[in-house]
Write a protein that binds this DNA or RNA. Structure first.
Lengths: 215, 215, 215, 215
DNA sequence: CATGAATGAGCATTCATTCAT
DNA sequence: CATGAATGAATGCTCATTCAT
């Protein structure tokens, strides 16, 4: 985990660690592909091993159980989502409403560029063991809270309909963010950026409502 | 499966058919419950039989394969959706925009009152055999077309943003319609009707956009 | 479990229950044979199924886990041991020492006629799950107590060496009772009865020691 | 495995051989511990490597197969037993009966001080390959013969019951020698020496029987 | 000597499906 | 209609063993 760069055996050890890391990522990517196609329960460890070109027994060098693969996927997706949140919050001097628009755009572009893990993230939560499920739900609650806070702030800034419940609006925003992965087909239809723009506009209208008339 | 229509004892035969029908519905309902909890692949025929209080061998009097249960569920959901569509189209003397609002309301109320089959309808399409999957996709396309047509009509009536793609907007409407099943918990939160009203309002705003300024 | 003899469908139901019982016993007997040959851990469910002439999948109609087979074997052996204890205690008007001799004889004859289950009973206790292991240990403690009490009584009757610890002597008695299963080979060597007589005599001498000189 | 006897640096080579020897012993001891806890079949090479603090791949520098570990254990136990036999036979000017008592004492003390290897020695014979199993059985037969000869000699000296079969009595002696490893718990109960004394007395009484009356 | 990734055969267990009763 | 024993293929997982580094 910590970088030990300039000691007496850095090269080979570092390389080995890097290779391991890379292999781990390949394993999770293979799992994502197979889970996406067959669903978690319908997917077989054999299928994932085939995808990697190794024997299924060998796959168990990287995992303890099939569920580990699912959870690693959740961890990966979560880390990426957190990064988006951080970046969106780091932008300065914009209104809460514009921050929401930015967030929606970024998230949708990301989702469309990572269809498979995202689909799994939203479909297979209940296949995790209770402990892990709870952990993921906690992450999501934080995520949810982030959006609600922005909406509430926009209401205070007079840019969001004050008569609507922020929690319910946040849910509708999530709906718009998540759904494109179900109909987007790379190559066909618009680019992720175009879709993201249109959806962000749709969301902003829904949030603003009659607030703007006052402004 | 076999048609026993025109025989000499219509009454008792009718009753028997009804009883058969009723039992079939119980079977599908049990399957819906179990598929909802464990996913189609994760669900077992044993589990469904347990839910019905019979042995799994006995369940095969009602089905040929496990997939039959899934498909019947799709048929049932589809029939209900069609009914909503028919009712929404039967209402006279309203604008396209109001018809959309009506449709969204009706559909969301229905979804929230039938959480389990709806969740399966949106999750397990890929578990159907190719033929059946194609059939369901065709139904959905028809459904999709219905909404796109309404949006296009609203654009012509000057009540929907003419700069946005009707297909993309339709997708966002579907997103808002479908998503509530993921966060709605009966008892807690608002009633289905209240949720439906709020979501319909959100959707209408997104569709109208800057069109209203002209009006 | 309870006998329902004279009801309206006793014959077929009773027969079916009997057949089930008989099959269960065959299953345990097959397991005993295979566990005896390969040890519990080394034995395979496949091997037991082969012994029964069914597929290994079919075996799971009778059990939930491989360990169930082991535990049923323990239950069976325990029931048989209890029966011997009861019979030995039911004999009236004999001294404690003679009761010990009788018990040793009966137990050794039984062990030699049930070599396989007995061997497993004394070898594979630690392969049981903690709960079940505890249950078996409790049974054995009771069994142990039974013998210690008899020895103590014999000491009081002046027929057992009063200078020796009853618990330690009981252990030596068990040693003599159990060990024959390791060297006895049916057909070769003496009959179970002859072996039992000689061992019982050996045990009695060890217990009596110098007590008899007083008598 | 390779003999590096007569080379030009005997000292350092000797040290290296010693170190090698020591490591080999540690390996066998680790195997003994793990085999004792899980049984030979239930034990894993991984578990033994863990016990040694090395990786399982590394363990294969010391062995060719898992069975090698088991056989080395048998060799070790056998060497120790032989040593006891030699020492007991080296004692001069005692009767056969006293030699038996001495042997029983020494063997029980040894067994209680080496619980794990002894337990394996008596439990896992059948897990050896046929060739090795035959070798061990031959050792044991020799061991058995040693005791029978002593008993026969005691009969001739008028100190053992002449009406009993020496082979059968030898088996009962072995029973008493071996069994304590099943109930002895270090710390609790008596010391190995006290147990050995009591058991030796028990055995001697069983062997003497009515012979003493003549004496 | 030690590592650790990979192998490949095997294992306990599951489960949709069949069918004689 | 219902039962339940049986099937047989598949599944997740284990583990002794090998070998390039």
């Amino acid at each position: 985990v910590t970088a030990r760069e300039n000691n007496n055996a850095p090269k080979s050890a570092g390389r080995r660690r890097d290779r391991r890391h890379k292999r781990d990522d390949e394993v999770v990517a293979a799992a994502a592909k197979v889970f996406y196609e067959h669903g978690y329960s319908g997917a077989t460890v054999q299928g994932i091993a085939d995808e990697l070109g190794i024997l299924k027994g060998s796959l168990y060098h990287y995992i303890d159980t099939k569920e580990d693969l699912l959870f690693r996927l959740f961890e990966q997706v979560h880390a990426e989502v957190e990064e988006i949140l951080d970046e969106v919050m780091a932008v300065e001097d914009i209104t809460a409403l514009e921050r929401i628009r930015l967030y929606v755009r970024r998230q949708i572009v990301h989702n469309l560029e990572h269809l498979e893990p995202i689909a799994i993230y939203y479909h297979e939560l209940d296949r995790l063991s209770p402990d892990r499920r709870r952990a993921v739900i906690a992450w999501r609650r934080r995520h949810d809270q982030f959006l609600r806070d922005l909406i509430r702030q926009a209401q205070e800034e007079g840019q969001a309909d004050p008569t609507q419940d922020p929690a319910l609006m946040a849910n509708n925003v999530f709906a718009t963010i998540i759904w494109p992965y179900r109909w987007y087909r790379p190559g066909r239809s618009e680019t992720p950026e175009q879709i993201a723009d249109a959806c962000a506009e749709f969301v902003v209208r829904g949030i603003v409502g009659k607030a703007q008339q006052a402004a």
